[in-house]
Simulated assay, not measured.
Amino acid sequence: MTPAQARERFRAGERSPTAGWCRGWTQANLIAVPRPMAYELLLFAHRNARACPVLDVGEPGAYSTALFRGDLRTDLPGYRVYRDGRPVADVDDVPSWWRDDLVPFLIGCSFTFESALLAAGVPVRHLELGTNVPMYRTSVECEPTATLSGPLVVSMRPVPEELVDTAIEVSGRYPMVHGAPVHVGDPAAIGVADLARPDFGDPVEVRPGEVPLFWACGVTPQAAIMASGVEFAIGHLPGHMAIMDARDDDYRVT
């Protein structure tokens, strides 16, 4: 399936987490903020580039970008709307919410390197199960700006112990889409109390002989929006990504 075909299905009403969709095509997190907040978000992303790698930015009021030639208001499978830092609506599309002063940011997503993990023999549990990836707020604080602060959010994939080094090496070749894990092993060390209760997405089993690996996650800007009480913002529903007109290999380094 091409990105355009996937976007057409989402525009027509199909709702699904996008892990495994359009193999080989890059997926991205969406966060759109009012123009006065756009510089703060860009600075926050720069200071926390591991979690918030900026792939593309649109003009104020625009709902497409150079790398997303669809409609950002309708062509994702789910959206979350924020007022004063609080999520106020999970909706199928956002034309009625979109404002002329909104600046859309597309932030890198770890789904981009999952095909490479599979090709290297590393299993990806949420793909096996057909579920959303589990995501967790951590006790690790991002580097703040004057008006934006919040916790690092991570995604988790359990990996057989003998394949941990392979998973680190393979994902590390994709630094613009989070790169290598930020933490390996004990979830309590980063403030994650219970892997069975993710803050976003769906839980997956960590089986005997497996190690939980945690990657920085592009939901981090939404956590900052909530922690900072930003007046208005629109994001993707976590795990329901923007499928871009760019290839995974565009973000691979040798």
Rank of each mutant, 00 (worst) to 15 (best):
R99K: 08
G61F: 07
A6G: 13
A146T: 13
P123M: 01
T2S: 15
T254N: 13
P160Y: 07
S110K: 00
R125K: 10
H178W: 04
D100P: 13
C142A: 11
C52E: 07
C109P: 04
Y136D: 14
F214W: 02
A38P: 10
A32I: 12
D194T: 06
A216Y: 02
V88S: 10
P3R: 00
G239I: 09
Q5Y: 03
V159D: 07
L41M: 11
L129A: 12
V91M: 11
M241E: 15
A119V: 06
A6H: 14
G61P: 14
L213A: 10
R50L: 15
A216C: 02
D202S: 06
A146I: 12
L30Q: 06
E205T: 10
A119I: 06
G235I: 09
S115T: 13
R252K: 05
R83F: 08
T145P: 02
G218K: 02
L72H: 08
L67I: 09
A189Y: 07
A38N: 08
H236Y: 10
R173P: 04
V177N: 07
R252E: 15
L106D: 08
W97L: 14
D202V: 01
R11T: 12
P53M: 03
P104K: 00
S96V: 12
V122C: 04
M156W: 09
C142E: 08
A19N: 07
P95T: 02
H46V: 09
T65P: 03
T131F: 11
M135F: 01
I190W: 00
R83N: 07
T147D: 14
G185V: 12
R247Q: 13
S64D: 14
H236K: 02
D248A: 14
V164I: 05
